[in-house]
Measured scan of single mutants.
Amino acid sequence: GKMTGIVKWFNADKGFAFITPDDGSKDVFVHFSAIQNDGYKSLDEGQKVSFTIESGAKGPAAGNVTSL
C-alpha cells in the first residue's frame, strides 16, 4: 500500500535519496528512476512524498514516489 514520509536527503550527483517514513519505520532507499515527476527527477530535503515499498536487489526500496 501507499505510505507517506519526508525526504531525509537527496544526492543529485548519484541520483538517489532516502525517505523517513511517517510510521517510524527505518529510512527507505529511493533511486531516481522511482520518482514520478515529469521532467527532471529530483527531491528536496524535507519534502513530503507518498511511495510504495518494492523489494529490490539490495533490499527494500521506494517505488512510485510522488510529491504531496
Rank of each mutant, 00 (worst) to 15 (best):
G39P: 09
L68F: 01
F18N: 03
K58R: 07
K48H: 13
A17D: 00
G5H: 01
K14C: 15
F32Q: 04
G24T: 01
G15K: 08
V28R: 05
I6Y: 07
H31I: 09
S25L: 03
M3F: 07
T52H: 07
F51D: 00
Q36V: 12
V49C: 03
G1H: 10
D23V: 04
I53E: 02
S25W: 03
S67K: 03
K58V: 14
T20K: 11
E54N: 05
A57G: 11
G5F: 02
G63M: 07
F32R: 05
I35Y: 04
A57N: 13
D13W: 09
A34L: 12
Q47R: 07
V30T: 01
Q36D: 11
A57W: 10
A17Q: 00
D13G: 08
F32H: 05
N64K: 05
I19V: 07
A17F: 14
G56N: 07
A62N: 10
T52S: 09
A61R: 08
V30C: 06
T4R: 05
Y40M: 09
V30D: 00
F10T: 14
G39A: 09
G5L: 01
G39W: 08
Q47W: 06
F51L: 02
T52R: 06
I6P: 00
N11T: 06
F18Y: 12
V30K: 01
L68N: 15
G5E: 00
M3Y: 07
A62G: 09
G39N: 08
V28W: 04
D38N: 11
A12M: 12
S25P: 02
G24H: 03
T20D: 01
E45F: 13
K2N: 08
D22W: 03
A34V: 09
K48P: 08
V7C: 03
D27C: 14
E45H: 12
D27W: 06
F18D: 01
A34P: 03
A17M: 09
L43V: 06
D23W: 03
A17Y: 08
D13M: 09
D44C: 15
F16L: 14
S55R: 06
N37E: 08
A12N: 07
H31G: 05
N64L: 12
A62M: 08
M3C: 08
G15S: 07
H31M: 14
D22C: 14
F29R: 06
F32D: 01
G46F: 04
D44L: 14
S33G: 07
K58P: 14
P21R: 02
P21D: 01
D23M: 02
P21H: 01
K41G: 10
I53K: 05
F18C: 14
G46S: 02
D13E: 13
S42H: 11
G5V: 01
A62S: 11
F51K: 00
T66H: 13
D38K: 06
A61L: 10
F29E: 05
L68M: 10
I35C: 09
F32Y: 11
G59L: 11
T20R: 11
L43P: 03
K48S: 08
T66S: 07
F32C: 10
L68K: 15
I6Q: 04
F10P: 01
D44P: 05
K58N: 14
V65S: 06
T4E: 04
K8W: 03
I35H: 02
W9T: 03
S67W: 03
L68C: 15
D22M: 08
Y40N: 11
G56T: 14
S50M: 10
I6E: 02
A57E: 14
N37G: 13
K8S: 04
T20V: 08
L68D: 15
Q36F: 10
F32V: 07
A57F: 12
W9H: 04
T4A: 04
I35R: 01
A34S: 12
N37K: 07
D38L: 12
S50Q: 08
S50E: 08
I35G: 03
A61S: 11
G63V: 14
K8L: 08
I6H: 04
P21F: 04
T20C: 10
K58Q: 15
F32E: 04
N64C: 15
A12Q: 09
V7L: 10
N37F: 12
V28L: 13
G56P: 14
T20E: 05
T52P: 03
S55E: 13
A12G: 05
N64V: 13
K58E: 15
K41M: 10
V7E: 00
G56D: 14
H31P: 14
N64P: 08
D27G: 09
H31Q: 13
G24A: 02
F10V: 15
K48D: 02
Q47H: 07
G5M: 01
I6S: 04
V65G: 14
F51C: 02
G24E: 02
D44I: 14
G46W: 03
G15P: 01
G15C: 15
K41A: 09
I6D: 01
P60V: 07
G56S: 09
N37Y: 13
D44R: 15
H31N: 14
Q36C: 14
S25K: 03
P60E: 12
F51I: 02
A17R: 00
Q47D: 08
F32W: 12
V7G: 01
F32M: 07
F51P: 00
K41E: 10
E54S: 06
G15D: 03
I19Y: 00
E45G: 06
I19E: 00
V30H: 01
Q36Y: 10
I35F: 14
G39V: 08
S50W: 12
H31A: 14
P21S: 02
F29T: 05
G15Y: 05
F51G: 00
F29A: 04
A57V: 14
I53L: 11
T52M: 11
V30R: 01
G56V: 11
E54A: 04
G15N: 06
S25A: 04
I35A: 02
E45I: 13
G46E: 01
G46V: 02
P21W: 03
A12E: 06
